[in-house]
Design a protein around this nucleic acid. Sequence first.
DNA 1: TTTTATGCAAAACATTTGCAAACCG
DNA 2: CGGTTTGCAAATGTTTTGCATAAAA
Lengths: 140, 140
Amino acid sequence: MNSYCVFERLRAAGLRPTRQRVALCNLIFGSGDRHLSAEELYAEAHRAGEPVSLATVYNTLHQFTDVGIIRPLTGEGQRTYFDTNTSDHHHFFIEEENQMIDIPGEGLRLHQLPEPPEGMEIVNVDVVVRLRRKAAAPAA
Amino acid sequence: MNSYCVFERLRAAGLRPTRQRVALCNLIFGSGDRHLSAEELYAEAHRAGEPVSLATVYNTLHQFTDVGIIRPLTGEGQRTYFDTNTSDHHHFFIEEENQMIDIPGEGLRLHQLPEPPEGMEIVNVDVVVRLRRKAAAPAA
DNA sequence: TTTTATGCAAAACATTTGCAAACCG
DNA sequence: CGGTTTGCAAATGTTTTGCATAAAA
């Protein structure tokens, strides 16, 4: 979470620790697991006084994805979200709020994985549990 | 699959069977379960000599979604795909080809569903099994 | 100095919207 | 007719690209 850590994380990934990348990396990993879009990260950077360009935010998110330190979220919105938690886990999706929430590790278990088609292998499995707000109980 | 069926399907859904809707409905449901995007359906309609506008294709897909005869696919591309199979089933996703394939019903089983957060209820569960072509065995 | 990254503005897409004209019942 | 639906074209929102400038090694 401190800068060294970020420096090393970037170096280890083979990315030059430029000012922008360090700043974005700090924002991304500075507060636990998160889900964020390019636009959000861009806004955050500017709020934090780091004037990166939107194009750089996109580039950076893709570079981070390529080296595996974040991963894109499977969802159906038009906007792409990235997850800072690259370990195997799944998500709730609240449609009305367009919000993704992590499902705690033990919450869901896959019992049987399907046989992939000939010549294919499974990379990973994403589960999205779509949620809706329960109809409020009628006030008495 | 013939026109009556489509007429009735549309009426049952409370949609006026206009020429365009009937044509699109025939294309969508004319050949078994499919996954298609607005752009693809638009191209197909034109190939079939039914000159609908792209806007109408979008409108129609959304109307059909609203009345529940098709459903949007959970995926991570920028383009939205729709599935003519609205029953509970899951998908393989081949990244290199950007292609979704149905997983046969028995192929995957969820063992334990997570407890939704307070005040929420589960609408449905989408599982995407990401696939990759196996590395070819090195030629001897 | 050489390579690589950044920023800007413009391009490329996918999708939505507003409104007049056409269509369904 | 009267309310819907359509089609067009323009607007919107997101993501990508090209290229000159700036920064890292």
